[in-house]
Amino acid sequence: MKYHVFTRVNAGDDLIHAGTVQADSDRLARIYAYRTYDEEDWEFIGVVREENLLEVKTEAIAGGYPQ
């Protein structure tokens, strides 16, 4: 599974997309993210499964007008 890695340097900052990791479980994804992107001392580092990223498509909005 592909996971996206999000981080921030200071509390209150917007999250930035640091990169991705490939992992077979959430537990491994956390470790891989930390080990791969640990060159900064992040205030927050988190992972999101790619399948949980919802693509926004205009045609999917009921009653809308696709471009």
């Binding site: 479980s25 537990r27 491994l28 930390y34 080990r35």
Partner: peptide
């Protein structure tokens, strides 16, 4: 912490596969 967490995470997936 990181060694042991990595290994346990791997053992969990290998126990399945």
């Amino acid at each position: 912490y990181f060694h042991l967490e990595h290994q346990d995470g791997r053992l969990e997936t290998l126990a399945e596969s």
